[in-house]
């Protein structure tokens, strides 16, 4: 039987329950993309063709296309697609500006539209720049068919809540679960979280002190944890 890429537990349990009902009633479900419409915005014609073909192979019902951010926004306004797949570098309007308009322009038909930004940049500062513009997913070129599929599946299975603050509207930039987040706490609602974070830091610091005591080291001494005998 063909392997299916399960994206969450409930899908996997559907698979298992199908198994319990007996081999003849074994049901494997897969995504039906036929009702989905995706707008691809890319100024490089061969690349635009590749993206369209990939999406059509995935079974996407309709792939709309535009050659730059300006044209892309006009089509987005008119057609209101379910998702936008845009290149970063385009003239006269790039993928970042298109994302900002989709999120903030009063003429935008859906400010929550998922945007996947394609780019050759992979440096952290570029990812942060895209994230701050309201991009939902970042796809580094060159990519494989599975890379593109994973971004789409992520949008479907793990949609992010949206945040509106004085200077930002877009998908929550804190991707990881709250108790894993270690970045700056800038939201008013972060008070309790900040206390928890501080407690974790304190506990980690105490643990380090304990290790140093056992190893006979002074505060500030550097050590390699693999060299310490804890027996």
């Amino acid at each position: 039987m063909e392997k299916i890429y399960y994206n969450n537990i409930s899908n996997f349990s559907n698979f298992l329950w199908g198994g319990f009902l007996g081999p003849r009633r074994f049901v494997v479900m897969s995504y039906k993309f036929d009702k989905v419409r995706i707008l691809v915005v890319e100024d490089n014609a061969p690349m635009l063709d590749i993206c369209k073909s990939l999406l059509l192979t995935f079974g996407v019902g309709e792939v709309l296309s535009a050659r730059n951010g300006e044209e892309g926004f006009q089509i987005f306004r008119k057609e209101n697609p379910d998702m936008i797949l845009a290149d970063w570098m385009m003239h006269p309007t790039d993928g970042i500006s298109l994302t900002r308009r989709a999120r903030n322009d009063p003429a935008s038909p859906n400010p929550y539209v998922p945007v996947i930004l394609m780019t050759g940049f992979s440096e952290k500062k570029r990812v942060v720049q895209a994230r701050d513009a309201g991009v939902t997913e970042f796809l580094v070129k060159p990519f494989t068919a599975r890379d593109l599929y994973k971004r789409i599946a992520q949008i479907i299975e793990r949609p992010r809540q949206f945040v509106r603050s004085e200077d930002f509207f877009g998908p929550d930039r804190r991707r990881k679960a709250v108790n894993e987040y270690n970045g700056p706490l800038k939201r008013e609602s972060d008070g309790a979280l900040a206390i928890k974070q501080k407690q974790r830091m304190k506990s980690a610091s105490m643990h380090l002190d304990e290790i140093r005591d056992k190893a006979g080291l002074n505060k500030g001494d550097k050590f390699d944890i693999t060299d310490i005998d804890f027996s």
Partner: peptide, 28 residues
């Protein structure tokens, strides 16, 4: 200074359209 932030959970229209499962190895 800490900023006020409002949170919205938009309806997941895509999930409603595509249903459950994934894509098969064959398609990928």
């Amino acid at each position: 200074p800490r900023r006020k932030a409002d949170f919205h959970i938009p309806p997941n229209h895509l999930k409603m359209k595509v249903g459950y499962g994934g894509l098969t190895d064959n398609i990928l």
